[in-house]
Write a protein that binds this DNA or RNA. Structure first.
Length: 945
RNA sequence: GUCGGAGUGGCGGAAUUGGCAGACGCGCUAGACUAAGGAUCUAGUGCCCGUUAAGGGUGUGGGGGUUCAAGUCCCCCCUCCGACACCA
């Protein structure tokens, strides 16, 4: 079916020409071309680029360009018009660049593992795979209708066995590696083993390698791995016999489904040692073309702070280690505050309250132990929200002291919930004079405050955190913060009381999920309970097909068990791991959804390779920067919500793969662009209930629904706000090209913008006018002529080309469309048949934005081939400058007149022309000219007194 | 609270490096075509003064500054959106 529509199938009459570009015609054009593109593989991109194929007669080196969207989760709810904004943007850009001669790779995939499909399965009994594939098909259909120029043969879903086989393979690479911090890179675990056995490295548990048993050696290696097992709490719900995600647990600690009690229980879970890469993740941000805001978010998330770790001696044998960024304030330390769950607390509790213990320190308890227990109970009952809202400081005294190393001062030890176990060492040296939180704590408990930095005289605040000379600090007195820190650290290191340290907020990545619908780990356990890698040759480990979704009740004492534990046959497996065929227990957790999205860009490059996750030569071609940059995807477009986790995890995996020699560069995404969101008006009646937005009418600035007033707000499109507009609505009202054009015209791609259905007509009108300017609406025949365009029209065309080219390059599609509209308005105004040269340029400029109508026009005008592979028109520099130009003449900065001057005129000539202007001389009468400023080609300004 | 981003007509938004503010579109007004118009076409449209006009004033969140010239640069403040949220 390569034929374009020749007879419209809807009713025709005199007032509605047969070939008017309306929704019906648009739909026919669009579906016909979509079919033709599919049949002709118009968007296929081959891996060894056929250099000659698209190359111009002009010898030009073709450059690769890898354009990518953050792939979606295939939800069952279907798309609304907000979803495809970024996809249209990348499509336009990719098409434009292809027409500029680039070898463009653009495709799309699905991030298809995840909770909703599993939940759906639980409710309906339908297997997650069935449901997922159905959703993918539906979403694909909706996206296809948009005419996106993806190479569909490269599409992947993370749930494809052929894909997750390699996700498992990458996991094994990480599992089989350790971070050599001296070399600053990951290395194979075999190398670690050699170095440990050669005594070149000290073991983590302190015992010599040579004296270790086989099991001890395995344990030692496990301590170094980049993927390792650690204990972390999970939400165990015995009533449902499963572990729940945080969002499945209600605020009062019960399961959302069934309202069963949920218990926080520790469980062995996989962790990824992303913290080893903290510094590289931080440093390499500098080489990326990302917005500052995203870089800042990543920096904050990594949260590197430099300072010192200081040891405080206690009454018991143990020392309390604290991390501080302000070692210079050590002389001002007047209390020690530990996190309630700090491991030393129990050891430091004294049996009775010391004499003269203030009542406010005891929490009203008769003994420190009782006080601690009561306080811990209180804290554990507080929800996160309450902790955030209630910022007043609480805590209790342990009844014991510790010693400030630098001045041997005895200070009381407290526990308080403002100290977090998860950061630093979970202990804080309280310096109220220089830290507001400590100040608040000190005033609550009446603890001594010693200032160690002199505040300015007019300082009226509480804690003083700015710079200033040290006071009350012995050998530091007079030094400003930076120097004081240095001196104190020198003293600490010299005296053995502490050392320079760097701490990060970033934690290791909890990589286990207690779900069914995720990638199984390629890991088994033997009788030692230690993990063993499944050999690469045994991959993939497929999910068991048969699943029992019915909840089964267990008692509170039972061990937490992920859903895969129910696949009893699957849970054990026979492998030959070097000791002959034996039976092993499988890892029952699955990987998080992030896993599949950590490397999908690499699989796009070589999606059917079953020998390797990606062919190195192919990877190098698409991922390395020809101009010596860090390389990676050339343009990655997606929402800010992935600013931290996805982008950090993907960078981490990429760096590991880079260290191990599997990819050619250190970073996955060279340029990141955050698209904005489409918002839509939502309306609430006087009860606060959302009403169907589509039925709301506006009158004199107020809004009414069925005659009753409603209030307007803006929010995300969706069912809950009852304000969704679907692409299908737009297809039937205007066609896909109009929708594409409107979405690109609404504003710059990176900005949030409100959807306005009533405005879509404007974009439709543009296409209609373009069509009418080139096609006879009653016959469907082209009306263009082979005449030479007038000088004026030719110049306008070339100015438009230059402007559109520039705007497209900068992703400013709204501006590009505005310029195209101006050109088309001129064609409309002149009402003369359009010269073919101008018509073709117009069509080619439009084609990235509205490919279907562009193809149709291209063909109707008698051109050969698809617009997809044409070259973008080039502006003739000579036609961009007019011979003469009208410049504004300002007097004291206000435009008072205009004069025509030659474009090439020098300032002197312009000044003369300006001063000779009739209106200027009139206005200057009786005034003294102080200065004349001439900006050639721009304007002139006469300064008078 | 800290960090990041943004405030331009009734609305969405233009305005490379300081150089004609409001391109382009929606809406609105008037008109044309029409049996009809929620289709299409033409013209106008920041606000104020000016009967039309000519012209003038004013105008990019507020205040100050630099400059011949500021939406754009600097300082202070206000508002909105987003992220983090007791990170020692």
């Amino acid at each position: 079916m390569n034929r374009s529509p020749s007879t419209p199938d809807h009713e025709t009459d005199d007032s509605h020409p047969a070939f008017r570009y309306d929704a019906h015609l648009a739909e026919r054009i669009e579906t016909d071309w979509q079919e033709r593109w599919a049949n002709e593989n118009t968007y296929r991109v081959s891996n060894l680029p056929p250099v000659e194929e698209y190359r111009d007669s002009v010898a030009e080196k073709r450059q690769k360009l890898f354009v990518m969207d953050m792939f979606p989760y295939p939800s069952g709810a279907g798309l609304h018009v907000g979803h495809p904004l970024g996809y249209i943007g990348t499509d336009v850009f990719a098409r434009y660049k292809r027409m500029r001669g680039y070898d463009v790779l653009h495709t799309m995939g699905y991030d298809a593992f995840g909770l909703p499909a599993e939940e759906h399965a639980r409710q309906t009994g339908e297997h997650p795979r069935v449901n997922t594939e159905k959703n993918i098909a539906n979403m694909q259909r909706q996206l296809d209708r948009l005419g996106l120029g993806h190479d569909k043969e490269r599409s992947i879903a993370t749930t494809d066995v052929a894909y997750y086989r390699w996700t498992q393979w990458i996991f094994l690479q990480i599992f089989q590696s350790w971070y050599d911090s001296e070399a600053g890179m990951a290395k194979p675990i075999s190398e670690l083993e050699e170095r440990l056995s050669a005594g070149q490295l000290v073991t983590k548990n302190g015992h010599p390698w040579s004296g270790m048993t086989e099991v001890e050696r395995r344990e030692e290696l496990d301590r170094w791995r980049l993927a390792y097992l650690g204990e972390a709490p999970v939400n165990w719900c015995p009533g449902l016999g499963t572990v729940l995600a945080n969002e499945e647990v209600t605020a009062d600690g019960r399961s959302e489904r069934g309202n069963h009690p949920v218990f926080r229980r520790p469980m062995k879970q996989w962790m990824m040692r992303i913290t080893a890469y903290a510094d590289r993740l931080l440093e390499d941000l500098g080489s990326l073309d990302w917005t500052d805001s995203i870089k800042t978010m990543q920096r904050n998330w990594i949260g590197r702070s430099e300072g010192a770790e200081i040891a405080f001696e206690t009454a018991s044998d143990s020392v309390i280690k604290v991390f501080t960024t302000r070692p210079d304030t050590l002389f001002g330390t007047t209390a020690m505050v530990l996190a309630p769950e700090h491991p030393l607390v129990d050891e430091l509790i004294s049996d009775v309250w010391p004499e003269d213990t203030p009542a406010s320190w005891t929490g009203g308890a008769t003994s420190p132990r009782e006080a601690v227990e009561e306080y811990r109970r209180l804290v554990s009952e507080l929800s996160d929200l309450e902790r955030q809202e209630n910022r007043s400081k609480t805590g209790v005294y342990l009844g014991s002291h510790c010693v400030v190393p630098v001045n041997d001062k005895e200070i009381p030890v407290f526990i308080a919930d403002y100290v977090l176990m998860g950061y630093g060492t979970g202990a804080v040296m309280s310096v109220p004079g220089q830290d507001q939180r400590d100040w608040d704590f000190a005033t609550t408990f009446n603890i001594e405050i010693v200032r160690t930095v002199e505040p300015p005289e007019d300082f009226s605040g509480e804690a003083y955190v700015e710079d200033g000379p040290a006071i009350n600090s012995d050998f530091l007195n007079g030094l400003y913060i930076e120097e004081a820190k240095g001196s104190m650290i020198d003293w600490l290191e010299g005296s053995g009381n502490g050392e320079r340290t760097i701490t990060y907020k970033l934690r290791d990545w909890l990589f286990s999920r207690q779900r069914y619908w995720g990638e199984p780990f390629p890991i088994v356990f033997d009788e030692t309970g230690l993990a063993l890698a499944v050999p690469e040759s045994e991959l993939p480990i497929e999910l068991p097909e048969l699943m029992d979704w019915a909840p089964r009740s267990l008692d509170e004492e039972s061990e937490p068990e992920p859903p895969l534990g129910r696949a009893e046959e699957w849970a054990t497996a026979d492998y030959d791991l070097g000791e002959g065929q034996r039976s092993y227990r499988r890892e029952l957790n699955t990987m998080p959804q992030w896993a599949g999205s950590c490397w999908y860009y690499l699989r796009y490059l070589d999606p059917t390779n079953d020998e390797q996750f990606v062919d190195p030569a192919v990877e190098k071609y698409w991922m390395s920067s020809p101009d010596g940059g860090v390389g990676g995807v050339d343009l990655y477009v997606g929402g800010v919500e992935h600013a931290v986790l996805h982008l950090l995890y993907a960078r981490f995996w990429h760096k590991v793969l880079f260290d191990l020699g599997h990819v050619s560069g250190p970073e996955p995404f060279q340029r990141l662009y955050n698209q904005g969101y489409i918002q839509a008006a939502a309306y609430q009646d006087d009860r606060g209930i959302y009403v169907e937005a589509e039925k709301v009418v506006e009158e004199d600035g107020s809004f009414f629904y069925e005659g009753l007033p409603v209030s307007r707000s803006f929010g995300k499109m969706g069912k809950s706000l009852r304000n969704s507009v679907t692409p299908d609505d737009m297809y039937s009202a205007y066609g896909a090209d109009t929708l594409r054009l409107y979405e690109m015209f609404m504003g710059p791609l990176d900005q949030d913008r409100p959807w306005e259905t009533k405005s879509v007509i404007g974009s439709h009108r543009l296409l209609q006018r373009v069509w009418r300017n080139l096609i006879d609406e009653s016959t469907g025949m082209a009306t263009v002529v082979n005449d030479q365009p007038t000088e004026e029209l030719l110049r306008l065309t070339h100015r438009t080309i230059a402007a559109v080219d520039d705007a497209m390059e900068g992703l400013r599609f709204n501006s590009a469309i505005a310029r195209i509209t101006e050109l088309n308005n001129e064609l409309t105004r002149s009402a003369a048949p359009v010269p073919a040269e101008v018509a073709n340029s117009l069509i080619l400029m439009l084609s990235p934005l509205v490919p279907h109508i562009a193809e149709e026009l291209w063909q109707r005008l008698g051109n050969d081939g698809s617009v997809v592979h044409q070259r973008f028109p080039e502006a003739d520099e000579a036609l961009l400058v007019d011979e003469s130009i009208e410049i504004p003449v300002q007097i004291n900065g206000k435009v008072r007149s205009r004069v025509m001057v030659a474009t090439s005129a020098d300032p002197q000539t312009i000044e003369e022309a300006v001063l000779a202007d009739e209106r200027v001389t009139e206005l200057l009468a009786g005034k003294a000219i102080r200065k004349v400023i001439v900006i050639p080609g721009k304007m002139a300004n006469i300064v008078v007194s």
